[in-house]
Amino acid sequence: MTPSSDLVVQTKQLSKIFRVGFWGKRVTAVDCLSLEVRRGEVFGFLGPNGAGKTTTLKILMGLIYPTSGTARLFNMDMGDPRAKTRLGFLPESPYFYDYLTSREFLRFYGHLFGLWGAVLSKRVDELLELVGMTHAKDLQLRKFSKGMLQRVGIAQALINDPELVVLDEPMSGLDPIGRKEVRDLILRLKESGKTVLFSSHILHDAEVLCDRVAMILKGRLVACGRVTDLLDQGASHQVELVVDRLTSEGLDHLRPLTDKVVMQGDRMLVVLKSQQQVGGALEIIRSAKASLVSLNPQKGSLEDLFIREVKGLQRPPENRA
């Protein structure tokens, strides 16, 4: 049990039902979601497009009111202005005030936190430096590329030196360099002791960055925990071997241990059922005087887990158990 003072974000049975269209059809965007984000961790909030990630973040930011359930930031009720002073938020594909220059833009947000004068100027310069935008400080935002906008957007989220930084899809729409920069920035925030909560549908980013992740599908939590635990849980533990010049006799011995054998001329790719088979397989290869080219334990990825969960959800409920 985490002490409540260490809980930065906490939602309990959070639900949001939207009414859409003329007849007010009910659409459940978030369904009984209970989450906890602890101090100092990088928390990834994962799910496909339309899973309810943005809606959940918007509820936390006070942009949307939940239909039922509670959400607390820093152990304070939603909408408490004290919680908002300790928070930084970057919305998904933001546009911002394009008639402002980046410096005016950051100064404006500083004013909203009661920062003025020399203190603010110093903070703005530091932030522009941090996100590498010093060269464009007097350029109007309308002339910015998407990557530049994302960077001043992050600077905007950090203006009050927040304890919790919430980023909605910070990597989407960026080129590989831009994505790497955002990744580095998130790691730097973690180093400086901040809690980072970000949503993404790019699982690789989450795998690299996050301490813990939550996966949601159709508004429901389907998996939550440490990245390594989740990967172990669902991983197949298969091992891939590449072998040269294995005789057909040797292959016959090997076959019972394998899941799959792919022949490519003299070379073959062998997939072992589990790591327990490795010793036996190596023995057979040695006695058949074949040579081992490579041995790769197959690591599960969040993507595998994700696809499994999606498929599980699409199956009719009686088969799910």
Binding site: K58, P91, S93, P94, Y95, F96, L112
Partner: peptide, 14 residues
């Protein structure tokens, strides 16, 4: 429309 309000309302501004 431009979502600029998201950044304002998430700040301590009523």
């Amino acid at each position: 429309e431009k979502k600029t309000i998201y950044t304002i309302v998430s700040k301590p501004v009523a």
